[in-house]
């Protein structure tokens, strides 16, 4: 038979492109706007209560003013910032803030991790009861807590000295006062931190543990090589919260118990700021301090969030 091979025709590419009718502009716009409308209340609150004061503080930091409406604001440029950076009290307060934050990590990172690991086996109703018990101090208002602790720390009749069998003047001696502020803040935060770590542990797939157990790893090896590395984003989050919030969280205790004393040895940066702003009425100076702390803590936060992202291992 004579003939020739002919290639089977390929499917030709469409040359004319039909255009589907798009919905009218108004409807598309309405659809696009909806998510922003849902965001609006939150953004609005932030704008009114956070960003506007921030802008006002930035403005005030270039003026000298004593907060009296009758006194005119006097423009001083960067003078407030120069004065602030030269202030020896600032350096002391920074040092105290750093030390207290570090000490507070014991209650917000180290102890919660240990407690959560030990109690991870508790299940069912026992877990609910134990969670409620450990969370209870979080619900005590800081000032009410401070008042109770003030009684308990009393050097003559306080429960703490009786239990310890010592006569420590907790509020008027430097080191004991610092310890008291940190421990009471830690007591407030421990329950919350334990729940955060427990949630972090619950988020780790049980199968990793099972695999490690079958691979004959000991409990300690599993904790060290599997659990803690996988928990590290949670721990970094808690460290971040501690660094950013320790100043504000210790504030009510400092104000109630020691008023920054003895000899300014419990004055942290926020308490210092508050003294300048609302006791000395040096508004421009306090605003400059506020902005400086805002920027400094912002930089630390960004650094820690980057670290947390690096430590997060997405599986699947």
């Amino acid at each position: 038979m004579s003939g020739t091979f002919v290639e089977v025709a390929a499917i030709p590419r469409a040359t004319t492109v039909a255009t589907a009718r798009r919905p009218p502009f108004a409807r598309r716009a309405a659809r696009g706007v909806t998510p922003y409308l849902f965001l609006l209340p939150a953004v609005g609150c932030l704008a009114v209560w956070t960003y506007r004061p921030l802008a006002a503080a930035l403005n005030l930091s270039f003026f000298s003013w004593n907060l009296l409406p009758t006194t005119p604001k006097e423009y001083v440029g960067l003078d407030n910032y120069h004065r602030l950076l030269d202030l020896p009290e600032l350096r002391t307060a920074l040092w105290i803030t750093a030390m207290m934050t570090l000490a507070l990590m014991l209650f917000t990172v180290v102890l919660p991790t240990i407690v959560a690991l030990w109690t991870s086996a508790i299940g069912g109703r026992g877990r609910t009861v134990y969670s409620a018990l450990i969370f209870a101090p979080v619900l005590v208002p800081p000032v009410a807590g401070a008042a109770l602790w003030q009684w308990m720390l009393d050097p003559h009749s306080g429960a703490v000295d009786k239990v310890l069998g010592a006569e420590i003047n907790w509020i008027h001696e430097t080191r004991p006062a610092q310890i008291a502020i940190v421990v009471i803040t830690g007591w407030h935060l421990l329950g919350f931190a334990v729940l955060v770590v427990s949630a972090g542990l619950a988020g780790i797939d049980e199968e990793y543990r099972n695999a490690a157990v079958l691979d004959r790893a000991s409990r300690w090896q599993i904790t060290r090589w599997i659990t803690l590395p996988l928990l590290s984003p949670t721990l970094v989050f808690l460290a971040l919260m501690t660094i950013l919030m320790s100043g504000t969280l210790t504030f009510p205790l400092i104000d109630t118990l020691t008023q920054g004393g003895p000899d300014s040895q419990t004055t942290n940066v926020y308490y210092l700021l508050w003294e300048y702003g609302f006791q000395n009425f040096d508004t421009g100076f306090a605003s400059a301090a506020g902005l400086l702390f805002f920027v400094a803590f912002g930089v630390i936060a960004v650094g820690l969030i980057r670290l947390s992202d690096r430590l997060t291992f997405h599986d699947s």
């Binding site: 797939d205 199968e207 990793y208 099972n210 695999a211 490690a212 090589w225 599997i226 590395p229 996988l230 291992f313 997405h314 599986d315």
Partner: peptide, 9 residues
Amino acid sequence: FQSYALYPH
């Protein structure tokens, strides 16, 4: 394991 349970880190 069905999920392989490879240690992600």
